[in-house]
Design a protein around this nucleic acid. Sequence first.
RNA 1: GCGCCCGUAGCUCAGAAGGAUAGAGCGGCGGUUUCCUAAACCGCAGGUCACAGGUUCGAAUCCUGUCGGGCGUACCA
Length: 576
Amino acid sequence: MNLRRELESRIHDALVAAGAPADSPALIVPSARPQFGDYQANGVMSAAKRMKINPRELAGKTQQFLKLDDLARKVEIAGPGFLNIHLRDEWVAAQVAGLQDDPRLGVAAASEPQKVVVDYSAPNLAKEMHVGHLRSTIIGDAMARVLGFLGHNVIRQNHVGDWGTQFGMLIAYMESSSSDASAPIGDLEDFYRQAKKKFDEDAAFADLARAYVVRLQGGDKDVLAKWKVFLEKSLAHCQAVYDRLGALLTEADIRGESAYNADLPVVVEDLGKQGLLKESQGALCVFLPEFVGKDGAPLPLIVRKSDEGFLYATTDLAAIRYRVKSLDAKRILYVVDARQSLHFRQVFAVARKAGFAGDDVSLEHVAFGTMMGEDGKPFKTRTGGTVKLMDLLDEAQRKAYDLVTDKNPELDEELRRRIARAVGVGAVKYADLSQNRTSDYVFSWEKMLSLDGNTAPYMQYAYARIRSIFRKGLDQAGGQSGGVKITLESPAERSLCLKILQLPETLEVAAGESLPNMLCAYLYELAGAFMSFYENCPVLQSPEPLRSSRLSLCRITAEILKTSLGLLGIEVVEQM
RNA sequence: GCGCCCGUAGCUCAGAAGGAUAGAGCGGCGGUUUCCUAAACCGCAGGUCACAGGUUCGAAUCCUGUCGGGCGUACCA
């Protein structure tokens, strides 16, 4: 059950019965302080304001119409018109007891499942994947998992950069550097750098490269074949990174720029038919009044260059059409760098205007900030180069391995390696996800691998500690997984239970706003609540039935940690 | 110039739809181990929420302006 939603609905009804307008939300939030109960309703005051009546009076009336006895022990009016809700211990305990055999941990599947496209990762296949692709891949993957868990029909789309001028250069270089075009390309990054160097230094080669672009886009069989050889190599590299990262993406999710190639003239033609096109300086543009450029001049969205080539705006429009018409998407998330926000505002606006996306389709730019080094400048290697994702993950794993070895040298090496993988990769992902995605974020090994604070290792450690209880306790009684009555003896147990019940409402917000950090913040609170329970409430030494009740709380907490970290794409470990 | 984002503790960041006394972690100081992982837990200190106005019963949050920072701004993606 979504507790917040339940309270919202019941108090809203009472508020309306008390005379408030039908669209008055109850505005339920967890209470600011313990003396204000478990949840507070802030909506009475704003409703009273609209009605121009005394808020405390409205609060009193609302209270009379309120049917909350089954779950609340007390609802009191406080301050200028807050309603403070104190939940019944028995109710809280019973709700938690009900989760014992629930694999969904109280999270209902969406009553109206949506078809959601999540566009993420989207590396440029001309080069190796680097840190610039990390945030999109991690955040997008987490969103895809969360939405899927909530019962939505998620379609992952990896809009890879597999088309464009650089490929002419790369194919030309393939030819010139080896007589056998299918010869393996060694290091993708070196290959690109060498090709680029030749392109810049050798005018004849540059001309050749440009000729190849034309032949490629013209559908020349020979050039296409070479292009495919290159793509295969590059895609294999991407897949290796995804596997290593534990991202869901596979070849089936790839629909790159080239997939829309044939559709681009059609899109432009369509825009023309609707009278949206205007020629300016030789280029075909869509001008919308809400976009103004320098000196108040209208700002175009260019869909065809003066040399008749197409741009990424055209491709993005074609992609929207495809996603709406062919995939039947009702919500499309673009997990793309915040620097492209103007581009997406324009593309979305044009797509709406042209009818590529109707009012029933939500187009959302899930923007994120830049990854910074600890010096506050964009994250680079010591020598100023681009950090390759593979190298980054290697280092994360190495650091995690050293840490585990340092703390637990007695674990066998194979196990330490497994732990290092989960902790290292998890730390990188969690550090990113736990931050509000809209701000730039400072990459710090020390911070992300710390056991203190809102980090993956802390969460994984909490999980490992719980599992340890079961390793010690299962040979005795306590193996049962359901039907145990939950007793709330200490305040720590009660807070833990309340946290346990807040998973559904947390996921709702995280999914709705595409804010995975909301889920991380929740997990941190849950783990914190568990830690104080752990310190204050002996489990295995407690007499029955308390022992079983506490074991049950441990089991449910562990399940939430495991499932939720899983939704963030992070693995748990049994020991660390 | 214009547009978007941002400015919260010494540092890195939370802050849900305008709610009550603004929260974490690091760093600093102090405490907890015959007890299920001390890689942990608990306590203390630390804030004119950039500044100035405004709206409101109530503003870190909304509006206006100023200062400071980042990014973007016609044929790259």
